[in-house]
Every structure is written in C-alpha cells, then in structure tokens.
C-alpha cells in the first residue's frame, strides 16, 4: 500500500512545477523578443509601436498576461521553498568544495541568477510596463509612444549596463533551465537529450543577443 503524499508538497512535485512554470516563462520570451525585434526595421518605431499597442490592448493577450504573472510568482515561490529546504538539508557546510570538477558554475548559481533577474525585472517593469498600464487604463493607449520611451530610457549608459547584466543573467539562467526542465519532466533520452541541449544553447544565445542588442543599438543611435 502506498501513502500518497500531496503532489505539490513532494520534492518531485515541486521540481516539476518549477520546470513547467519555467518553460511557460521561456515561451513568453519568444513573444517578447519577436515584438521588440520590430525596432530593427528602423522606421522610427512605427511598426514597433503598432505591435506594442496590439500587445497592450488585445483582450486575449491581457488574459495571458495574468497567467504570466501567476507563472512568475509560482516559479519564485517554489524556488524559495526548494532553496529553504536545500539549506536545511546541509546545516554544516564543507570547508573545501571543488564544484567545477563536477558541474557548471551556472547550474549551481540558479538562485543568484534568478535573484539578479528579479531585480532587473522590477526595474524593467518600472521603466516600461507601469507607464503602458497607466496609458491603457486612462484611455491614452493610442497616444502612448513606447518607442520614444525606449529611446529616453536607453540614453543613460548605466541603465544600458544594467540591462546587459539582466540579459546576461537570463542567458545563463535559461542555459541551465531549459534542458533542466526537460530532465525534470522525465524526458531524458540518448537520442533527444543532446538535441534539447543544443536547442537550449542556441535559444539562450539568440534570444539574449537580440535582447542585448536593443538597448545598445538605441544608445549608440544605430536605431533612431
């Protein structure tokens, strides 16, 4: 006979929740980077503003946005629960640890990378999301010019630097997170795991290079 423990309170249940919410957040990155890439058309932000306006006002996108925040909050809550348990599992640490002998530094630093991402995210939302929300709820969405806002924000070199740190953290976070999520969901196969790892690697690099090039291109006025 098995005494079933509540799925979400079990270690594997929490891990699977981390993996699923993580993959969901990764799917958002695809949408985000696609919409933002409209600035590379370099038409003074006409295409980008149209896309941003659609994203800010479309009811279906609004609904998914609620899901996105729920996913983010769950990802953070499970991360905190798991981290606390992990700290409790080793009350006395080692004097000497040779971590690089058996694992990648970024796979051991998901908590720090995630915390950096969260700090970046708060700053990022304060820069763009809040203003857009105010514009939408006061009925000024048509006049809201997100492209001009981008130009203003990215005229400061230290904000550009902060964004690069944020995107760098993202790169290493999903470099481990992407393939880790599939392993957690039980997908480990001699044929498919190397493919998943390659997709994760190129996904992280391409998405993060695109994101990083945006503030840099605006700061250096390659995009006007």
């Amino acid at each position: 006979m098995s005494e079933k423990s509540f799925f979400l309170s079990s270690s594997i249940g929490k891990k699977i929740s981390m993996g699923l919410t993580g993959l969901f957040l990764i799917s958002f990155l695809i949408v985000h980077v696609s919409v933002n890439s409209c600035i590379f058309i370099n038409d003074g932000g006409i295409t980008f503003n149209a896309a941003a306006h659609f994203m800010a006002t479309n009811p279906l996108i609004r609904l998914i946005e609620i899901g996105l925040f729920a996913g983010l909050i769950l990802h953070i809550i499970f991360a905190l629960l798991l981290t606390l348990e992990n700290k409790k599992a080793r009350p006395i640490g080692y004097e000497k640890i040779n971590g690089s002998a058996n694992s990648n530094w970024y796979s051991r630093s998901m908590g720090i990378l995630g915390s950096l991402l969260l700090i970046f995210l708060v700053v990022h939302l304060a820069h763009f999301w809040i203003d857009t929300k105010i514009a939408v709820f006061t009925g000024k969405a048509d006049k809201h010019n997100t492209f001009n806002e981008m130009k203003e924000v990215f005229s400061n070199w230290y904000i550009v630097a902060l964004y690069l740190i944020g995107v760098g953290s993202l790169l290493f976070h999903i470099l481990h997170g992407f393939q880790s999520a599939f392993q957690t969901l039980g997908l480990n196969h001699k044929k498919y795991t190397p493919i998943i790892k390659k997709i994760g690697l190129w996904f992280s690099i391409i998405v993060c290079l695109l994101f990083a090039s945006m503030p840099v291109a605006i700061f250096t006025e390659l995009i006007k």
């Binding site: 079933k4 270690s11 798991l82 058996n102 796979s107 880790s180 957690t184």
Partner: peptide, 21 residues
C-alpha cells in the same frame, strides 16, 4: 516510487536542481 520518494523527503534530503554533480 510513491513510498520511496515520500521516505526520501521525510529523511530531510534536499531537492534536485539537475547540476549533474
């Protein structure tokens, strides 16, 4: 699998983060 994972959690082991160590 249900019983062994339950016992593993009760013994106070930590959670896997797939570092591969």
């Amino acid at each position: 699998v249900l019983n062994m994972v339950k016992q593993m959690d009760e013994e106070g082991f930590g959670n896997c983060t797939n570092t591969g160590a």
